[in-house]
Each structure stands twice: as C-alpha cells, then as structure tokens.
Design a protein around this nucleic acid. Structure first.
Ligand SMILES: [Mn+2]
Ligand SMILES: [Mn+2]
Ligand SMILES: [Zn+2]
Ligand SMILES: [Zn+2]
Lengths: 154, 154
DNA sequence: AGAGGTATTGATTTTCATTCTCATTACGGA
DNA sequence: TCCGTAATGAGAATGAAAATCAATACCTCT
C-alpha cells in the first residue's frame, strides 16, 4: 500500500474545507472520485475518470463524476483545459504551467515562462484590464520517433 | 454601393485559388457566405453568420455555412477560436494577434507581443518541437463603466 | 450548346460531451 | 435517532457540429 503523499493529503483537506465552508456534504462518491483522480497523472477527461472510478465502484454514475470534477476545480484541487474542441481535460492543481501540444501524436509537454507571465501583466494593465487568468497553448510537431509528423495548423 | 476593398478582393482571390487548386467548385452559396463574412467585423459564430446570410438568401442551409467557414479557414481567409467552451468563433484572417477577454462583459480586445512570439519559439525549440501555431488568451476584468466587474477565474 | 461526371447543397438525422430532471437516498447537525 | 437538505443515479434533454443522402449545380470536354 502506497503511503498517502502529503500532496494527496493536502487535496483531501482542501476538499473538506471547501465542503464545510460551503455547507456541502462529504460523500463516499466524492471521496472515491478524489482518490482515483489523485491517482492519475497528466490530463484526463471526465469520462475516462468515470471508467477508472467505476472499476472500484460499479454503481457510480457518470453525472456524479462530471459534477464532482467541476467541484474540484472550484475547490482548487483540479484545473480544466480545452486543448481540443469539444472535450474538457482535467489535471491536478499544482505548480502553474502552460502546454505545448503535438498536433500529430497528441503528446503534451508542460512549460513555464516567467518572461511571458510578466509580459501578460504588462499587456493587460496597458489595456485597462485586471488580469485574472490566462491560457497559453503552443502547437507543434514533436521529435518522438513514433510521431506521425504531419504538420497542420491548429 | 461600397467600393470593394482591396482586402476583400484579396479574400475572393484566395478562395478562387484554393478552390481551383483543390478541384473544388465556385458556387453562389460560397460567394454569398464570403460576402457576408467579409462584411462582418470582429468575431462571429457560424450560426450568427448563417442568420446574416439568410437575410439575403433565405434558402441557404446552416450546414453549408458550417462547411464553408471551415473551408475559409483552410483557404487562409478565416480563423477559428474557442474562447468559451462549446462555441467556435470565426474572424477574418488578417494581422496576427492574441486576445484579451473580459470575464464579465465578454469584451474582446486584441493585442500583439513580439516578445512573447520570440519566447514561444525559444520554448518550443528547447523542447524539441517544430512550432506550427499557438493560442494565447488573457482573461481579465475591463474598465468599461457598464462592465459587471465580478472577477471570476476562467 | 449539350452531356456526363463530380462536387455541393439543404433538410434531416446523428453524434457526443455535458447538463438537467427528478425521484430516491445519504449526510450531518440537533 | 430525526429531520431538513444536499447528493446521487438513471435517463432525458441540450446544443454545436458532423454525417447522410437524394437532388442539384458546376465545370470540362466535345
Ligand atoms: Mn498540465
Ligand atoms: Mn481577433
Ligand atoms: Zn508528436
Ligand atoms: Zn468587461
């Protein structure tokens, strides 16, 4: 049995806090979903997570997973992304980063740029905006040997 | 009658070129849709454009507008964006720019940053990617007097 | 101009992720 | 343990976009 990482414990705490602070209830489903979610690396769809949770909890409903993932975002445990249109990908909230995606094989690489962050602030301010967030996605073709490598604009 | 701007003429030429170069046909619908599209400023959905085209061409089908807008993107006449999830917004292909969006009133401001462009190249290269495109969206709250002004993370 | 081989169109259906409904159940404070 | 909500799960509803398909419009070649 894997030792419960501190980061996982923190997530559990955040959820509890958020729930009590909002008069919401702690349920077996929310626990189960959080468990599976924390056990996941990278980016995952609600449907994919639903399949995973389902293995341990066959009576789980997909609507509950959709609802809960949204809740996780509000609680600061998860983050939602829309890399391809039509699907929402979730990932664990952690250090801030942007994404670099291969348009051929779908590989996702994460990156950070303090320089860009500062520039964003400057731009927003110059336009009279209070910056509250941003999304920065780079599309390219990676060097993986198994990447189809057929450049195509996003 | 407004004089056909050079930029509009260029769009028509691009479409013709693309069509003939791909063995596709010039149709009254494509002309009509292009006409309305060029007559539009800013960002518009397929459905919205459909409504506009429809005023002059009541027999136009919405599926045709969807198909044609996609065609315009391939022909380099239009660009697609996904600011809010679930809808595709199109705008005329022109000078390259990014977007700054008010999370309250939906106002869209365009900006450019040579500094960010360069940084993107650097980042992609360092990760072994051939950069083929990017999307950079800033979310904030604008200073418009009629802006609800209720900050909320995207 | 006319014919024939495609590409295109419009109406309609389908898809598919996500949300909504609602009857039933589970929490959790008193 | 009781009670008032919040939560759940099954299924229906949404809505943008894509897919179907029979009817039509283009275009090229004679
Ligand atoms: Mn990530
Ligand atoms: Mn724009
Ligand atoms: Zn790749
Ligand atoms: Zn605003």
């Amino acid at each position: 049995m894997p030792a419960p990482s501190e980061v996982a414990q923190r997530a559990h705490r955040r959820l509890s806090d958020y729930l009590s602070r909002h008069g919401l209830k702690q349920t077996r489903q929310r626990d189960a979903i959080l468990e599976s979610f924390l056990d996941t690396d990278g980016h995952i769809t609600s449907e994919e997570l639903y399949e995973r949770v389902r293995r341990e909890h066959p009576e789980m409903g997909s609507a509950t997973v959709y609802r809960t993932l949204k809740l996780f975002c509000e609680a600061g445990i998860a983050n939602a992304h829309h890399f391809r249109d039509g699907v929402t990908l979730y990932e664990r909230e952690g250090h801030h980063h942007e994404h670099l995606i291969c348009t051929d094989c779908g590989a996702i690489v994460e990156f950070e740029s303090e320089l860009v962050e500062q520039e964003q602030d400057r731009v927003a301010k110059s336009r009279g905006f209070d910056l509250v967030g941003h999304r920065h996605i780079l599309y390219g073709v990676c060097v993986r040997s198994d990447c189809p490598r057929r450049p195509e604009a996003p």
